[in-house]
């Protein structure tokens, strides 16, 4: 299986102590290490206001991880472990490698297009010095 990139976000209850949040992060890292996955980055976003009530809470502690793995079943295992935890009220995993491929593809297309088309700014600049030249000739003919 080719390597896949996943975004994992989970939300803890706002009253969760910091130590418990770190334990959860460690548990995710351990599960990834067991399956040979690599955690690209982990971010603790802290307490943020939720757009709607989740488990009767209006705020939550957001934790974000980016995981690179060739084992898709790792995500099932992670979600199972997060679902068991009382402190976690919401979690979401999104596969990102296809989006990143598309981003690269469109970026390359744009660069190709920019390299192919000559810049149109040069043409008016070249025409501008030529414009005043006929004017003095016209004035002389009018005076004459």
């Amino acid at each position: 299986m080719e390597e896949r990139l996943y975004d994992l976000i989970f939300i803890c209850r706002p009253a969760t102590p910091e130590e418990d949040v770190k334990k959860l992060v460690t548990a995710v890292e351990t599960a990834c290490a067991e399956k040979g996955a690599k955690i690209e980055k982990t971010e603790l976003w802290g307490t943020k206001k939720l757009a709607y009530r989740v488990a009767k809470h209006r705020e939550g502690i957001f934790v974000y991880s980016q995981i690179r793995t060739t084992h898709g079943e790792l995500i099932l295992e992670l979600e199972r472990r997060l679902g068991v935890q009382d402190a976690v009220i919401k979690y979401m995993t999104i596969r990102l490698d296809e989006d990143m491929k598309r981003q690269k593809k469109f970026g390359k297309k744009r660069e190709k297009r920019a390299a192919r088309r000559p810049r149109r700014n040069v043409a008016p600049a070249a025409a501008a010095p030529a414009a005043p030249a006929p004017a003095p000739a016209g004035d002389q003919s009018a005076a004459g």
Partner: peptide, 28 residues
């Protein structure tokens, strides 16, 4: 919306409206 960063329905923070939501007292 699924990760509660934006609402499914109701007042959106930062959408440019200062009008209070009708059900703000009772929840979303």
């Amino acid at each position: 919306r699924n990760i509660a960063l934006l609402p499914f329905a109701g007042h959106t923070p930062g959408a440019g409206s200062s009008a209070p939501h009708r059900f703000s007292e009772r929840g979303d």
